[in-house]
Simulated assay, not measured.
Amino acid sequence: MDTINDMTEGKVSQKILGFFFPMLWTNLLQQLYSVADTAIVGKGIGDNALAAVGIIAAVSLFIIGFSMGLTNGFSVIIAQSYGSADHSRVRKTVWQSVRLCVIIAVILTAFSIVFLKQILQIMQTDSIIMKDTLSYGRIIFGGLAVTVAYNLCSGILRALGDSKTPFKAIIISSTVNIVLDILMIFLLKTGVAGAAFATITAQLVSMIICILKIKTLTIMKYDKEERVPDREISSLLLKNGLPMAFMNSLTAVGCMIVQAYINKLGVDYTSAYSVCTKYLNLFMLPSITAGFTVSAFTGQNFGAKKFDRIREGVRAGLLISFISYIILGAVMNIFPSQLAKFIGHRNIPRR
């Protein structure tokens, strides 16, 4: 059954919040299982493994962040096509997005695996954790195609106003990830490689659920001529996706520079920074989700040429972001030690 959500009609605040909350729970669960993953690694393997996972998280922001920016940009064009009620163009745009993502996934996978060690050396990764970091990173980046596919599929669903299917997918995949983490680390003693395998497997489950949902949508019933290469649509997708991709990667470069300086201080500081980063990502979720919500809402209404609704939607997104920063920022500053101890970082460095 179709669950496409037309955001060009109806009360703006109702549409925004109806899309925002399922997507917030999706992103929250994704971050919570990331925190759980980190906590299991910290408690089951130790601070060195925790540091290794944290370093790869910084590199992931550079490489996987590029693909996320690209697919987010693609989803805006898909939303615009849907908002203009041109369903044939929606299908063409989705198909061209798939073609481009296959190419990008191959390039990013090859780059990340071939140059991972050099990147870690530039980041001044401690030799004590280099082996674990490489082991974890090669599995994570080896499964990059799965990550790109999931990001694209969830982006397509968001563009069509469906934030509930990714939520269901994350509930299932989070459970898979945590169960596999416990199995791999505590029972099979596979170390950080087991944690990486659990993460990629969970991502694969999410991807399959989203693909199966997309295939049930009536709007996704293709004609043969809609599957042919289209230079005009491909150019439009890249024109919109590449700036977002490079923006993410440039932000990641700054994070990698900070990570390099942290790494110079020793493994204790690296693992402490890893803990902090997990919580920062978690607490930034409401504002990030508000951005995704406004992006989908704006895309559909831009296609429908309803610019007053766009302005109202942007104001609603800004209000959500402001309130979340005040509340969650206070929690982060009032309870830092308690949050760190929950994940399992024992040696909190002080100066």
Rank of each mutant, 00 (worst) to 15 (best):
F186K: 07
K224Q: 14
L160W: 03
I129S: 10
D2E: 15
P229E: 07
G303K: 01
I310G: 02
T293C: 09
R350Y: 13
F322K: 03
L265Y: 11
Y222G: 12
P336F: 09
V258W: 13
S88C: 00
S127G: 04
I139R: 07
S135C: 07
K224C: 01
L183V: 06
I185F: 10
Q31T: 13
M7K: 02
G291E: 04
I334S: 00
G83R: 07
L24N: 04
S174M: 06
I257N: 11
K11T: 15
R309M: 00
V148Q: 02
C153R: 06
I170G: 02
M184A: 07
L160A: 07
S206V: 01
S13R: 12
A193E: 14
A245I: 13
W95P: 00
I334M: 06
S249K: 03
I257Y: 14
D162M: 01
Q80N: 13
F19L: 03
S249Y: 09
M23S: 15
I348E: 11
Q30H: 15
I104S: 07
F307D: 06
M256P: 06
L160S: 03
I326R: 02
G137Q: 07
T251D: 08
C101W: 08
T216W: 00
F20G: 02
F197H: 00
I119L: 14
F66H: 11
A193Y: 04
V179I: 15
D181W: 08
P166I: 00
I64Q: 01
A159W: 06
S173V: 02
T190M: 13
W95S: 14
I185D: 11
T3A: 08
Q259G: 08
I104R: 01
Q30V: 13
M23Q: 15
S274I: 12
I327R: 05
M256S: 05
Q124Y: 07
V148R: 10
M256C: 15
L24D: 07
C276R: 11
L24K: 10
D223I: 01
I310N: 03
V35A: 03
I182R: 02
I208V: 13
I214P: 00
I78P: 07
L238W: 05
G299W: 09
E232Q: 04
E312T: 04
V331Y: 02
G69M: 13
I288G: 05
Q300T: 00
D2M: 11
I45R: 09
S163G: 09
S60Q: 14
K213N: 05
G73A: 11
R351W: 10
M332N: 01
G303H: 05
S84G: 15
E232Y: 08
N248P: 09
M7I: 05
I209P: 13
G69D: 12
L144C: 09
V275D: 12
L50H: 14
G317W: 00
I56Y: 12
T93G: 14
V59H: 04
I55T: 14
F111Q: 01
M7D: 03
S75T: 07
I348F: 10
Y273N: 13
S173L: 06
L236G: 11
V228I: 14
V176E: 07
I320K: 00
I170P: 01
M130I: 10
V253S: 00
S174K: 06
I171C: 15
F302K: 05
G299L: 04
D223A: 05
G44L: 12
I171R: 06
Y279T: 08
A290I: 05
G83S: 13
I209H: 10
R346P: 09
V179L: 15
P166T: 03
A57S: 15
F115H: 09
V94I: 15
